[in-house]
């Protein structure tokens, strides 16, 4: 069976420190997975390995069955592996519409075009609007991103990634910094993700994880400690130990 994303014995050493230790997991097509773990468990390193910012010391990464371990970050994006960021990484002076249209244009190979105009391209406009609509950003689509409320910016963070046409979406703490009152908006946005996209969410907020994920991977000290359904994970004494520090 081909998985949307698969890692085999992924390892990354920084000098003597093993930040990622023999991580093997599979993410099925359309899966809703979460990756949790205490601070320093190696979540950020793992994301950087998956997106290609870091090269693994050993092991392989497969995207839809294709080995992408040696591919450049932008080639991975083109192949359908897209991430969001824990701290908003947006284009403050552009509008949400321009941002999403640019990502859409990039997906169609038009981001270097000179003679085209994005507004004249029906597919770009149509598909940009669909993405904005999905995340409830239509009413603010023509305002500079910098003027948007934080919660809306957080949604745009995800919308931008979705506009890239991902097959696998890595969500890095989508609810980071979002006030309690705006949490529901984020959850609604996550529920609106197209079903054919496989999602791996890295999150600290357990409430969000248990409501979103159908399968949870627990990372501790760079290695996968355990994995299973939310019910299994919440009942697992090993997980409690890691999180609550019981010995």
């Amino acid at each position: 069976m081909t998985y949307a994303l698969e890692t085999r014995l992924l390892q990354r050493r920084f000098g003597g420190l093993i930040a990622t230790s023999d991580v093997s997991f599979t993410l099925p097509v359309g899966g809703r997975y979460a990756l949790i773990g205490p601070n320093g468990a190696g979540k950020t390193t793992l994301i950087n390995l998956l997106t290609g910012v870091l090269r693994p010391s050993s092991g392989t990464i497969l995207l839809n069955g294709v080995d992408i371990t040696a591919r450049r970050p932008d080639h991975r994006v083109a192949a359908g592996l897209v991430r969001t960021f824990q701290i908003n990484q947006l284009f403050p002076k552009l509008t949400p519409l321009q941002s999403v249209a640019l990502a859409t244009a990039r997906r169609m190979g038009l981001d270097g075009a000179l003679r085209q105009r994005l507004d004249a391209n029906q597919a770009v406009v149509q598909q940009s609007m669909e993405v904005l609509e999905r995340f409830g950003l239509m009413d603010v689509m023509a305002q500079p991103v910098a003027t948007l409320a934080y919660g809306r910016q957080r949604l745009l963070e995800i919308a931008l990634a979705v506009a890239c046409g991902p097959k696998v979406l890595l969500l890095d703490e989508p609810a980071a910094g979002v006030p309690e009152a705006e949490r529901e908006g984020i959850l609604t946005g996550l529920a609106a993700l197209p079903r054919d996209i496989a999602v791996l969410m890295i999150e600290h907020d357990m409430d969000l994880v248990f409501r979103f994920a159908e399968h949870i991977l627990v990372l501790a000290a760079g290695a996968i400690l355990t994995q299973g359904s939310p019910a299994q994970i919440s009942a697992d004494p090993k997980v409690r130990e890691v999180y609550l520090g019981h010995s």
Partner: peptide
């Protein structure tokens, strides 16, 4: 052009 928009986006946020 889309090219110009991409360049402005790079100036604004190369990481993204």
């Amino acid at each position: 052009a889309p090219f110009g928009l991409a360049v402005q986006a790079i100036a604004s946020n190369p990481l993204r």
